[in-house]
Design a protein around this nucleic acid. Structure first.
Length: 257
DNA sequence: ATGACTGAGCATCTCAGA
């Protein structure tokens, strides 16, 4: 089984990129982030023509997540359990496919809105940890894929690519990410690439891509029984070199059937 | 020393991204 995640930075700007990528890579399921549109204008027909059904959690202009899969499925949650009822940010989708619970996330960046904005990020991470713990306690095989907006360690950003005070690297951000891992989850990409940079994002500015000044912020975390079946994991750097690319590349994980 | 990006939207500027 091939599972992928991709922050596309506007699905309407990246519709062709995603369609061609699906044809080339043939994932069983693809989680998308930063759709930047409401569900009715998501280009579902384009992906349906390629054999992919879509579940979309949209929002005007900001955020937005979706799942595309070749096997019929339904979204069981479209909001992160535990968040206030009036939270309108489209950042979470949870589906079940083949007995596995799969969660796609667009975790808050945390650099806007001052300390309140950062507190929202930490609260979001704590609710995500609680959701993961509930699945773990129920012995449910599950994975969490998406844009975590977390550089877990100093190896996960190029020197100079980010400020030391950025919300992606703040100590509390990393502590909350480790709390997730301590549930027994495996960072799929890092498990198979134990050392060195494995970037998934390069800023549009200052020649970050040609200078390879990237970040590793898109992750796939696996519950224990899925981790035992892990055979491959990594970013698809090829996509960053295309015309008008997203600033993120897809991350692809292979799980033995 | 200078310039250095992308996308959406009540749009020729602001907000957000990271």
């Amino acid at each position: 089984m091939r599972i992928a995640s991709w922050n596309v930075n506007s699905i309407r700007q990246r519709e062709t990129h995603v369609a061609r990528w699906l044809e080339r890579v043939q994932p069983d399921i693809l989680f998308l982030q930063e759709l930047k549109c409401e569900a009715p204008v998501f280009p579902a027909a384009t992906f349906k023509a390629l054999g992919y059904e879509a579940a979309v959690v949209g929002q005007k202009a900001y955020n937005g997540v979706a799942a595309l899969a070749r096997v019929p499925f339904t979204a069981v949650h479209t909001k992160l359990p535990g968040l206030p009822e009036d939270d309108a940010q489209a950042r979470y989708i949870e589906v079940t496919i083949g007995g596995i619970t799969m969660i796609g996330i667009y975790l808050p960046n945390g650099n806007s809105g001052g300390e309140a904005g950062y507190a929202y990020k930490l609260a979001w991470m704590e609710h995500l940890r609680a959701r993961a713990k509930a699945l773990q306690d129920a012995d449910t095989p599950f994975l969490i894929a998406g844009d975590f907006n977390v550089c877990p360690t100093d190896v996960d950003f190029a020197p100079g690519a980010i400020s030391p005070t950025d919300a992606l690297v703040r100590p509390a951000t990393r502590a909350q990410f480790r709390a997730l891992l301590w549930l027994g989850l495996t960072d799929a990409v890092r498990a198979l690439h134990p050392t060195g940079p494995v970037f998934t994002f390069w800023d549009y500015q200052a020649g970050a891509w040609p200078r390879d000044l990237g970040l590793r912020i898109d992750h796939v975390l696996l519950s224990p029984t899925l981790a035992e079946r892990l055979v491959a994991a990594g970013p698809d750097r090829e996509e960053r070199g295309r015309e008008q690319p997203s600033d993120h590349v897809p991350v692809v994980v292979e799980i033995r059937d």
